[in-house]
Structure formats: C-alpha cells, structure tokens
Design a protein around this nucleic acid. Structure first.
Length: 220
DNA sequence: CCCTGATTCGC
DNA sequence: GCGAATCAGG
C-alpha cells in the first residue's frame, strides 16, 4: 500500500481525532501501526500524549546494531520527580456549575436518574414509570455541517423512531444511519431487521451469508 | 502479557 | 520516504 493523498488525508483526520495508531492502521488497512506512526511523524503530526515521554530528551535508544555497549548506571541522580499525572484526555467542558440552557430552565426533575451508555435512563425498581419526559418543543435542530449531510441521518438524529442501521464507516465524512421508520419494537427498519436478525438454520442448510453491513468487509 | 507512541536506521 | 525493529511507560 502506498500513501495516496486520500489515505494521507484520512490519516490526518483520524490522527487529529485522537484515534490510536492501531485504530488508524486498522481503518486504513494495508498498513501497520508503525507505518501509521512513522508517517504521522513525517507529516509533522507528532505529539500526542505518549506513554513513554515524560522525561526530558536524552540520548538513549540503543541502536539495534551499533555497539550495544550499555554504560553502567549513571551516577548522576535521576530526577526522582514522579511524572505528573498524564495530561487528561480531551478536556470535556464540565457543565457542572452555572446555568446551562438559557432558554428554559430544567422544566422538571422529578427524581434523580442516571444516564447509561447510549443515553438510556436507568430506572430503579421503584422508579418504574417515571413520567416520560414531556417532549420539549423541539424547534431548534442542530445544523448539518455540510450540505452533503443535509438529508442524511447523523448520530444526533437517532431516536426511537428511526432505523439505526449504519451506512458507511464511522469516522468517514459521509457516515450516517439508515433513518427509515423503524419496525416497531426494533432498532431497525423492516429491511434492516431482516439483516440483523436471522433465524439460525440447521447446519448444512445455511444460506450464503448476506452482504455485510458497513458497506462490506474491508481489505486488511 | 496486552496496549500505547517515539525513535532509529537499513532499505 | 518508508516501516520493521526496538524502546519504554501504562
């Protein structure tokens, strides 16, 4: 594989998005993690929180072939300064204090609930039928970043009523979701339910596998 | 062991 | 320029 403009672009994007070199290599396909890192450095993309870089630069790395003579322990006191806690990841703005939405104060907070992964509300046994959050008058809709995405269903557009079947690959510009009305009770539309849920047939009678989601298998 | 990124260096 | 090998921290 060679570094086409396209692939370089993808590398830049994913790298700046904070994906790990492995993930990027995986995504690009045909390259190793090392290749990604090497390329990233050559592109000048360097410097992301590295696990092994707290100390000041000093000649170390014994070359693989040149005289691996290892000098005895250096008498000079090593800085015993404990490496300060690794810089936190992307600083998420902690909303903790202060008013958030100026338009409407929290209309109702009947009880404290926690939000699980994916945004589902956890309910305790006693909380069974917390009143469904009164649908706030949704007049504001997040703007689409680009005209091309205007009619696509983005992550933000997902709700209980639209098909969550992914089209394209996460991280790519045109990644979106099916968005058709769901098969009631399922996360997908009827068509994609057919793809997602398949009866287990007896061995030997299995049909050839249907096309994979995500636009098909990647070459790796 | 697994993971991570950084660096070196033969090609 | 490329990337495997290597290093080193978590």
């Amino acid at each position: 594989m060679s570094w086409t403009d396209q692939r370089i672009d993808q590398l830049k994007n994913l790298w700046e998005k904070g994906l790990t070199a492995s993930q990027i290599a995986d995504e690009l396909g045909g390259v190793s993690r090392n290749a990604v890192i090497g390329k990233a450095h050559r592109l000048g993309l360097k410097s992301r929180p590295s696990p092994v870089k707290a100390n000041e630069p000093e000649k170390k790395a014994a070359p693989k072939k040149a005289a691996p003579v290892k000098p005895a322990a250096v008498a000079a006191a090593k800085p015993r300064t404990a490496p300060s806690a690794p810089a936190p990841r992307a600083a998420d703005p902690a909303p903790a204090s202060g008013e958030a939405a100026p338009e409407r104060a929290a209309s109702a907070m009947p009880r404290i609930v926690s939000i699980g992964p994916g945004g589902f509300m956890r309910q305790g046994p006693g909380d069974q039928q917390a009143p469904i959050p009164p649908a706030p008058p949704r007049r504001l809709v997040p703007a689409k970043p680009s005209p091309e995405m205007a009619d696509k269903t983005s992550l933000l557009d997902l709700n209980e009523r639209v098909c969550r079947w992914p089209l394209g690959h996460p991280g790519e510009a045109d990644f979106h979701f099916c968005g058709e009305p769901v098969n009631p009770g399922f996360p997908y539309c009827v068509e994609h339910c057919g793809r997602a849920y398949q009866a287990q047939l007896p061995r030997g009678v299995r049909r050839p596998p249907p096309p994979m989601p995500f636009g098909g298998p990647r070459v790796r």
